[in-house]
């Protein structure tokens, strides 16, 4: 195991985050705060409790999910796309490292950033609403697993993308709608039966539901199923990344 390489990649990526602290941390915190102001305070004050939870508190897990999914994808896709764009990828390809070490460096750093952002948003939310975390360990487990999974997904996206448009199109056209329709701002049980069934085909529903359960012991689907979905997605992404490195897809000619 090339530990020095993992450390070098991880440190460089974390330094990049600190260099772009406004973009990396302040921006997601600010946008989440705005969600609280609009949905929590302005609109939320007119919405009754959902399953005994105040609306402001109800949306906290969903908003954290929204941020960590988009940030994980954004961070890791950019981390691997930018060297491809500038040509510095040659160094990574000619280095004595395996795909596992590359992933531990890039995905590890992207996931770390996401977890930090998730915790900062949680802290920010606590200024607006009272939050109880029923299962903090499971909450952290979901937070870490989802950060890692979506960082892996972002890595795949960054390898696949051959232009800036492709890099942004998936988060905007796929992830964002799925997250908004995945129960961030409402419970699936509030929807008409037909839409409830359709929603179950949205994988993000399971992520938000499981994460929310760790806070309030309240979920749209069983927490075991949510955990299974997260692990399944993680496995799929790992297989895809393994294949990318084995075949050299979009990396080696």
């Amino acid at each position: 195991m090339n530990l020095h390489a993992i450390k070098a990649i991880y440190r460089t990526e974390m330094t990049r985050m600190m260099r772009t602290v406004v973009q990396s941390i302040v921006a997601p915190v600010l946008s989440t705060s705005l969600y609280f102001v609009i949905f929590g305070a302005a609109i939320g004050s007119r919405i009754t409790e959902i399953d005994g939870i105040s609306y402001g508190a109800f949306i906290v897990p969903g908003l954290i999910m929204l941020s960590i999914m988009t940030e994980s994808i954004s961070n890791s896709s950019f981390a691997i796309y930018f060297p491809k764009f500038t040509g510095t990828i040659f160094e990574l390809l000619s280095a004595p490292i395996s795909f596992v070490e590359v992933l531990l460096g890039y995905v590890g750093a992207a996931a770390t950033k996401s977890v930090i952002i998730g915790l900062i948003i949680l802290g920010t939310a606590s200024f607006f609403v009272t939050i109880d975390i029923a299962h903090p360990v499971i909450m952290m487990l979901f937070l870490v697993l989802i950060s890692v999974s979506f960082s892996l997904f972002g890595f795949i996206l960054g390898v696949w993308a051959d232009g800036w448009e492709k890099l942004t199109i998936v988060p905007i056209l796929v992830i964002m709608p799925l997250t908004f329709l995945g129960g961030t701002f409402y419970s699936i049980s509030m929807l008409p039966p037909a839409w409830q069934t359709i929603s179950l085909f949205n994988p993000v529903v399971y992520l938000i539901s499981g994460f929310r359960w760790s806070f309030y012991e309240n979920s749209d689907v069983a927490v075991a199923i949510s955990l299974g979905m997260v692990l399944g997605f993680l496995l799929l992404c790992l297989i895809a990344v393994w294949w990318i490195f084995k075949s050299g897809y979009k990396l080696r000619s």
């Binding site: 090339n2 020095h4 390489a5 450390k7 070098a8 990649i9 440190r11 460089t12 160094e91 990574l92 280095a95 004595p96 490292i97």
Partner: peptide, 9 residues
């Protein structure tokens, strides 16, 4: 420094 680490030194 990054390159040195990447190559396992």
């Amino acid at each position: 420094r990054f390159s040195r680490g990447l190559f396992g030194k």
